[in-house]
Structure formats: C-alpha cells, structure tokens
C-alpha cells in the first residue's frame, strides 16, 4: 500500500498548555469536516521544514462529536530532529500543514470489562481521547497521569475535570510517585491496561504488569519515539533504480521519501509493520530499532523496518 493522500489543513489556534507542550487546533483548508476517528488514533503531520519535509505522528485528543477541527499536542523535544521544533517555532494560527487520514494503533479493547490507563508527560494525548470516549460508556475505567509539576499537568487537570472520580494525577516530587505496583495488583479480571509516555515509563509499567501476572493480551502501549540518529550509510533502491545516502539525523524511510520514492507507513515508530521492506543484499549489519520483527526475523537480516532502523554496512540493497 502506498501512502494515503494527505489532507491540507490550516492551523486555527495555538495554545501553550505547559512550558514544553503546545496544543494545535487544525481545520481543513476547504472548510469541510475532517474524517471521523476512534479514540487512540493518530495522524502524521507533514511539515514543510526549511531543509526537507518533516513527518511526525501525533495523537488526536478529542472525539468525533465535533469534526470541524482536530486537536493535537506537541512536546518540544530537547533532541528534536526538526519536527517538534518546527511546530513550536514556525507554526502559528494561519499556518498551512498537511495531515494523513487518522490511523488507530492504540484502540480501546471493546470487550474489556475495565480499562486502566497510565500516562506520563505528553503521553496523555491519546488518553485524552480515550477518556472522552469512556465517559459516554458504561465500562468502568481508571486513569493515572504522571506530570513533573503542577504547571506541567494542565492536560491532566482538564481530564480530571471531565472524569473527576476516574482520573488521578501524580506529580513528581522530586521523583516519580505513581505506585504502579499497587495500582496493578488490585485490578479485577478482564481489565485491559494502556500505557503511553516516555520509553522508560512504558518499560517499567509493562515489566511490573508482567511480574504481577498480567498476560500479553491485556497489555497495550504506544510509544512515539523519534527515529534514532546514527552513522550515515548508502542504500540502493532496486525497484526504483536509485542510490541514496542516509544522513546521520535522517531515518532510512525519510531518506527514501526525500528521494521521491513512495514507501508505505502507518506509525513511523517501528511498531505496526507497515513499512517492512525486503533486504535483497547486505554487506554489513542491520541496526534494528523496531519492536515489530521477532528476534529470529531480526537475526535473519532479510528485512528491515526503515522508519526506525538503520544499517552499518558497505552495501545495502532494498526491494523498494
């Protein structure tokens, strides 16, 4: 599948919600309603960066009840490869961007008997949509939001206003105070756990859940990680007959796109498998950073997820 056609949007409002996070309200340029979506969905925002086109996934925070606008929140990354810095510094009301149609890789399980949602920092964005959906249903739910301090907790306070009985805010003082172990220990059978936040938080919560006997089928998480930087390497794209160099701060997928070659993607975070690409020849080592391929598949070295993975090689030929 080739990438979906993008939707031209205009920025209606920019709202600083915390010292690090800005919320953007987007509307279609042609004024028509945006596509409906389900809680947990994200769009990929296509940004006309100064040197190259930037593409970052951001969760939709609202619901389909009002499709005149979408809301996303962007945290300024200290190690920004350009995307979050562009959103914070170059985007203002009236700015024009493009987005892909929504894709949901972090949906609520419709047969869950209870939902437990844990989030940290900007990981609250998909949970914002989840809570806005759950308040209209009859399945019990419980939300725990971690934030550095009260001025970083604006979005969590908004959620608490929507669902005061369900949402607990945990402020770091000075370290994380969310007692994940005791939260997880007392959940009734049929509960599903959802985690979104910094990589370390996700790993900690999932490990704690496993240790408490939670099976894989009840664990859901979404991690928006920037593709790791690395050494530059050269790639031959056999189907399109192109030879490209992947610079240190650019992902392989971005380099393929920059060369004008259409490549499929959904999550741009190494999770969904959509961009899986066959390796036709390799003299060197693949540096797998995805969580999609199994250890065996990674070791086989015959495929790569170009949205996050790189190579340390003399030769790499891809079927693309």
């Amino acid at each position: 599948m080739t990438p979906a056609a993008t939707i031209p949007v205009v920025v209606r409002e920019v709202r600083p919600v915390t010292p690090l996070i800005r919320q953007f309200t987007l509307a279609r340029e042609d004024g028509l309603p945006l596509p409906a979506f389900s809680a947990g969905a994200h769009v990929v925002v296509v940004m006309p960066g100064p040197a190259r086109t930037l593409r970052n996934p951001y969760s939709l925070m609202g619901t389909s009840a009002d499709l005149s606008t979408y809301d996303i929140a962007v945290r300024l990354s200290e190690t920004s490869r350009g995307g979050s810095r562009f959103m914070h510094e170059a985007v203002a009301p009236g700015s024009k961007l493009a987005i892909t149609p929504p894709v949901n890789l972090f949906p609520l399980d419709k047969l869950a008997r209870r939902h437990l949602l844990l989030c940290g920092g900007v990981g609250i964005t998909p949970v914002s949509a989840h809570v806005r959906e759950l308040v209209h249903g009859c399945v019990p739910f419980e939300v725990h939001c971690g934030a550095r301090s009260i001025e970083h907790a604006t979005l969590a306070l908004e959620l608490q206003a929507i669902a005061p009985d369900a949402v607990t805010i945990h402020l770091d003082m000075p370290g994380p105070t969310m007692d994940v172990g005791s939260i997880l220990a007392e959940q009734p059978l049929g509960t599903h756990l959802y985690v979104c936040g910094p990589g370390g938080m996700i790993e900690n919560v999932i490990a704690t859940a496993r240790a408490a006997g939670w099976p894989q089928s009840h664990l859901h998480w979404e991690r928006f990680t920037a593709p790791p930087a690395g050494k530059p390497f050269e790639v031959t794209l056999s189907r399109s007959g192109k030879r490209i160099t992947v610079p240190p701060e650019m992902s392989l997928l971005e380099a393929i796109e920059a060369a004008g070659v259409d490549a499929p993607f959904l999550c741009r975070g190494g999770a969904c498998g959509q961009c899986e690409t066959t390796v036709l020849a390799l003299d060197g080592t693949l540096l797998h950073h995805d969580v999609y391929l199994s250890a065996d598949q990674k070791a086989a070295g015959d495929r790569i997820m170009p949205c996050v993975s790189r190579a340390d090689c003399r030769t790499l030929v891809l079927d693309r």
Partner: peptide
C-alpha cells in the same frame, strides 16, 4: 489477516 489489520480509512 496481516494485511487487513492495517487497512486504512478511505482506502
């Protein structure tokens, strides 16, 4: 199944 799990809106 693998294909359909990634079926996209509008496509």
């Amino acid at each position: 199944l693998k294909f359909l799990l990634n079926l996209q809106l509008g496509r």
